[in-house]
Simulated assay, not measured.
Amino acid sequence: MDTIGTDGVAGQHSRGETARARRRKSYSLEEKQRLVAESCEPGASVSLVARRHDINANLLFTWRRQMRTPTSAASPLELVPVEVISSASAASPAAAAGAEQRGMIEIVLVGGVRVRVDAEVSEAALRRVLSALKAVA
């Protein structure tokens, strides 16, 4: 449908573009992947990446969501050794000092459940263990 622009000429939009010239830009999968990867870099801002490439930030967020792998398919489950200690048999201060030197972490959850892991535990494995414990509680 033609519109009447500010200059009074039919078929022109206010920006001087004809209706036929206003088409959406299409992006190849490789372009989308490159922009998503750039926006996922440490310290990157989605809105700044979008502005730099002259796209809407919401479009970039949509691409990121579409390309995200589901957490259930991200990686197979790993079993991680977990030691649950009741509050009655808490470790002695000397044992606790030794654990700190090795990078031992003790996480006390609501309800008094304690999870101990060392510095070698992967973040993904720890996240799955904590999620499982949360689901059981």
Rank of each mutant, 00 (worst) to 15 (best):
L77R: 02
E41G: 03
E30L: 13
P70C: 08
K32G: 06
V117T: 04
A99M: 06
R68E: 14
S122C: 05
G111H: 03
V9Q: 14
G103I: 06
A10M: 12
P76I: 07
G103W: 13
A74H: 03
A95W: 14
T18E: 14
L126V: 11
A96V: 10
P42A: 08
V113H: 08
I107G: 06
R114W: 11
V46P: 01
D7S: 06
G16W: 10
Y27H: 15
D54Y: 13
L48T: 04
S14V: 11
L79G: 11
Q12N: 12
S28Y: 10
L77F: 03
A119V: 07
R15V: 06
E38F: 00
A137R: 13
A37D: 14
A10L: 14
R23C: 07
C40P: 10
I85M: 11
T6A: 07
D118K: 00
E41L: 09
S87R: 14
N58Y: 15
V82S: 01
V115T: 10
A137K: 06
Q101P: 03
E106G: 02
T69G: 14
R114V: 08
R20M: 11
L77N: 03
L48F: 00
T3I: 10
A88G: 07
V46T: 05
R24E: 10
D7Q: 03
P81H: 05
V36N: 02
T6R: 10
I55H: 03
G43P: 05
A97K: 14
E17V: 11
A73V: 15
Q33K: 15
G111I: 07
T3S: 10
E83V: 07
L109H: 06
A95G: 08
L109Q: 10
F61D: 00
V108I: 10
E120S: 14
A137V: 06
E41I: 04
L35D: 04
R114Q: 08
I85T: 15
A74K: 01
S86E: 11
R51N: 07
A99C: 04
S45L: 01
N58F: 15
R65N: 05
T71E: 14
I105N: 03
P76S: 12
E38H: 04
A10H: 14
R23E: 08
G112F: 04
S75A: 13
E38P: 08
R116A: 03
V113F: 11
I105H: 01
R116Y: 00
D2H: 11
H13F: 13
E41N: 05
T3E: 09
A97M: 11
